[in-house]
């Protein structure tokens, strides 16, 4: 066997590994979500049903649709706000000269590595005092803050690749700084902005600990907390409900990941991965 063939073989093995290892839990999720009882492996009673889906979408006391709605609204608002705030800051950092610039960038970067648990205790007290526990605000504000380092990091790498002469031209053309950001820089860095919004959305959509501590019921509870705390009507873990709820809630993120994988990979790597 020559080298080219060995390489092809290794590549094939790698692809099979990726597909099997990464996908089989998803397959299992889907199978269980469509089966009448989760113990079919030992009982041998695998039967197809849509009742899990029907139930989580129609039984109001399960509140799944509330969780989903809360998650989408909270993550959507947080992602957009964080991307916009991040864009303002990234513009200032990539364009203006000022003392302490490095300190701000590195400081914000360090913040992104703070463990949530060291923030959430105090945040709980803070939100309680403001009477915000179990509201959208209790999650939106911390989510914006917690995702800002990511937003700044992505947008900064895109903005700093746009030559400064473009800004100067726009300044000479009479544009204010805010106009330059809105009408020139953001449109040019649109792929970066899209990557940022998608990643920030996923970031907030997937967050668990803040949501666990700062919400108490369906009025603000998000999907991850809902799925973690799902209690069946009769005590036993309702696997059918959990898996069908998981399928429904992962559809948006799976679609984003598959259709926009290019943007997501570029966003995560500061545009280093092309195509």
């Amino acid at each position: 066997m020559n080298e080219e063939q060995i390489k092809k073989l290794l590549l094939a093995v790698g692809i099979v590994f990726i597909v099997v290892f990464f996908l089989f839990p998803f397959g299992w999720m889907v199978i269980v979500s469509f089966s009448a009882s989760p113990d079919f492996l030992i009982k041998g009673n695998l039967s197809f049903t849509l009742s899990n889906y029907k139930d989580i979408l129609s039984i109001r006391s399960l509140h799944f649709l509330n969780y989903l709605k809360n998650s989408l609204i909270i993550s959507g608002i947080a992602a957009l706000s964080s991307a916009l705030i991040g864009a303002l800051a990234a513009y200032a950092i990539s364009r203006f000269k000022f003392a302490g610039k490095m300190l701000i960038v590195l400081g914000v970067l360090a913040l992104s590595m703070f463990p949530q648990i060291s923030i959430v205790g105090y945040l709980y007290k803070f939100m309680t005092r403001l009477r915000l526990i179990n509201t959208y605000s209790a999650l939106i504000f911390p989510y914006i803050a917690y995702s800002l380092p990511l937003a700044l990091w992505i947008l900064l790498s895109y903005f700093s690749r746009i030559p400064l002469e473009i800004d100067r031209a726009a300044q000479v053309d009479g544009a204010s700084r805010l106009q330059i950001l809105r009408k020139v820089i953001l449109p040019i860095a649109l792929p970066g902005f899209v990557s940022a919004v998608l990643l920030l959305f996923m970031f907030s959509f997937n967050e668990f600990l803040f949501a666990l501590m700062l919400t108490t019921d369906f009025r603000a509870r998000t999907v991850p907390v809902g799925i973690a705390l799902f209690q069946g009507l009769h005590g036993e873990i309702p696997w059918g409900y959990i898996m069908s709820a998981s399928v429904v809630s992962t559809i948006p993120v799976i679609l984003i990941a598959l259709l926009a994988q290019r943007y997501i990979i570029q966003g995560l790597t500061g545009g280093a991965v092309k195509e």
């Binding site: 002469e165 100067r168 726009a170 000479v172 020139v184």
Partner: peptide, 14 residues
């Protein structure tokens, strides 16, 4: 004032 730059500095998205 109006200015012309070495790199032309045209807005690539327009």
């Amino acid at each position: 004032v109006a200015m012309v730059f070495q790199s032309y500095a045209l807005y690539p998205h327009l």
